[in-house]
Design a binder for these strands. Sequence first.
RNA 1: UCCUCAGUAGCUCAAUGGCAGAGCAUCCGGCUGUUAACCGGAGGGUUGUAGGUUCGAGUCCUACCUGAGGAGCCA
Length: 473
Amino acid sequence: MTIARDSDENTRNLCSHRQSLRSLMSTANITATQAPVTTIREIGRHEGQAVTIRGWLYNLRESGKLLFPIFRDGSGVIQGVVAKNAVSPEMFDSVKKLTQESSVIVTGKVRADKRAPGGYELDVSDVQVVQPVPESDPFPISLKEHGVDFLMEHRHLWVRTPRQASILRVRAEIIKAARDFFDDRGFILTDPPILTPAACEGTTTLFPVDYFGEQAFLTQSGQLYIEATAMALGKVYSFGPTFRAEKSKTRRHLTEFWMVEPEIAYATLDDLMKLAEEFVAFIVKRALERRRPELETIGRNLAPLEKIDTPFPRITYDEAVKMLQEGHAKGELENRFEWGGDLGSPDETYLSSKFERPLMVHRYPAAVKAFYMEPDPQRPEAALCVDMLAPEGYGEIIGGSQRIGSYELLLKRIREHGLPEDAFRWYLDLRKYGGVPHAGFGMGIERVVTWICGLEHLREAIPFARTLTRIYP
RNA sequence: UCCUCAGUAGCUCAAUGGCAGAGCAUCCGGCUGUUAACCGGAGGGUUGUAGGUUCGAGUCCUACCUGAGGAGCCA
């Protein structure tokens, strides 16, 4: 039994309330030892029995001599019922005075009830208050709507709400699915460094770090490093955070986000596209199988997700350009797209809206893509690369390519891009000592979570989002 | 970096250039099945900041600050 000390001025006015809680708690101890401790998620197994749950008060409704405290414990939410004539007056009064998000240990009898959203209610016989939230300083996040900035300012408390907690559970499932997928297919997890030397792809998008007096940067991709481990282990992947100092102010961008990146020796672009579609289909299926209740809590329309299956549609960049130009001619797109540019956000949305499954666009012009991509031997101005666009306007979730195999060509590209040759010595070595055709892609976890959960903003898809304007909490 | 919009009570928002308001939250009271419960009452304000126009500015003008959405860039 724990009780908060009177360490805060705000809690002083609670003293009389606290006195009654203390006397309540001396009897509560006995009850707590009699009933088995369970979680709300598992509570159905104890129908008709007295159980103890440990959690927080989510909300309290009352109707005269009936109280309806709603408890949450991280596994779920359940409504308790306290009738005035069924408990002691002290007990009734204590529950009546409970404040939102006070931590509580609750004992009661589990009863099936058709009116309850979760199927069960708890006839409360005892409540121990672990720490009361002071009346003078109530929990800031009410059940009513709030603005984005306010919620982000209170993210550490916002995560307690059912919707946010559900999103985090889906995220965890997606990450586990990604790891299971690669682990089960013989991929080896190799963690690339987060601190990297010198500039790799242009310093403006990198976060500089002082490394014992030397300039270093936070990684913006583990790809170059897992190309090295792929040459050692054949099939590898990495899963970790990446950092982009881009000044992007949109709902699709974070400055710190998590990526899954597989890299495979002796793989071609076609192998990569097959892997990517199987991977994404696997993740969607897993989320539907294991996190359906959470997706429903979030309010996700599951019908579009149920349609996700292999094979995914594939179009070349050239075909995409044709579609975009036709779209412009029909008045469905504002600007006419010309061959040679990278697809913009409205272009991606338009293209993916024509399909119910994720769309793979391949063979972009080499000029708009990264320096390490292998040119198409059939058409050297195009790169052997692929972007996967999620349906429903969620945009790019995967970017990948076959990597340049030739030492000479890679060196040429590094020079063309004005990159520091010295910093890439090790990367060039991979083409000097037994280079092979190889390919890989990166998938942004938050973008996938946003799509699968049907969210408006990427910042809800990660526990603590880092954006251009926010590094608190 | 550019474009657009916003900033008023703890929160979400109203207020024709003319007395700064409502709902929620908090507190007090009522209700034996409430589902963001409901009903009655109370307290709660340097209208983002600094100037300006005006008899009078939350409202109009200028600058700045903060935030949001979008573009570019990207996953």
